[in-house]
Structures are given as C-alpha cells and as structure tokens.
C-alpha cells in the first residue's frame, strides 16, 4: 500500500488523498495581460521531474502541498501551504 504523509494527520494510505493539480502562482487578475492569464490557466510543466502539487486529505478536509517526482512517484516532502 502506498502511504502519503498528511501534514496534519500523519501517514495515511494514498486512497484517502485527492490530487489537486500543480501549484501555480496566480498573476494579478487586474494587471495580467490575456497572454499571461492564458499561460497561468493552461500551460503545464508536463515533463517528468520534481513537482510542487496540491493534494487534499479527503476524510479531514486538509489541503496541502506535496513535492513529488512525477517520474518515480516518490513523495519527497509534504507541508501546509503557509509553511
């Protein structure tokens, strides 16, 4: 069984978690050009490598960040967004 560590609840089976997409920084909606906004909405870093991702622990409703290698599926670090 694959285990992920929720920063609040500790190690839990992966089945309890939901993937929420890559962490991307939103440009200021008032100032961004259409092109910058499109890049924010659509451009993804799809190649294998270390990614910062949003994950959700469904039973407890915690959203957090995981650093995961999408090539090897190794979860390197998990922490709350503000940490």
């Amino acid at each position: 069984m694959k285990i992920m560590t929720c920063p609040v609840n500790g190690p839990r089976p992966l089945q309890e978690f939901v993937y929420g997409g890559d962490l991307t920084e939103m440009p200021c909606p008032d100032q961004a050009t259409d092109e910058q906004w499109a890049a924010y909405v659509f451009e993804r870093d799809g190649a294998p490598g270390l990614h910062k991702e949003w994950w959700y622990h469904a039973p407890s409703g915690v959203w957090f960040i995981a650093e995961r290698d999408t090539g090897t599926d190794e979860i390197c670090r998990t922490y709350l967004y503000n940490d």
Binding site: E43, A47, T70
Partner: peptide, 15 residues
C-alpha cells in the same frame, strides 16, 4: 512533454 522541452514549446499536456 520531454520532447517539447527540447524546443521550448509550452502546452497544457499532463501525463
């Protein structure tokens, strides 16, 4: 995606 990195093209593709 790794091939597009070689030419610097960005896409929404996720694998």
């Amino acid at each position: 995606p790794p091939l597009l990195e070689m030419v610097g093209i960005k896409t929404p593709l996720v694998i």
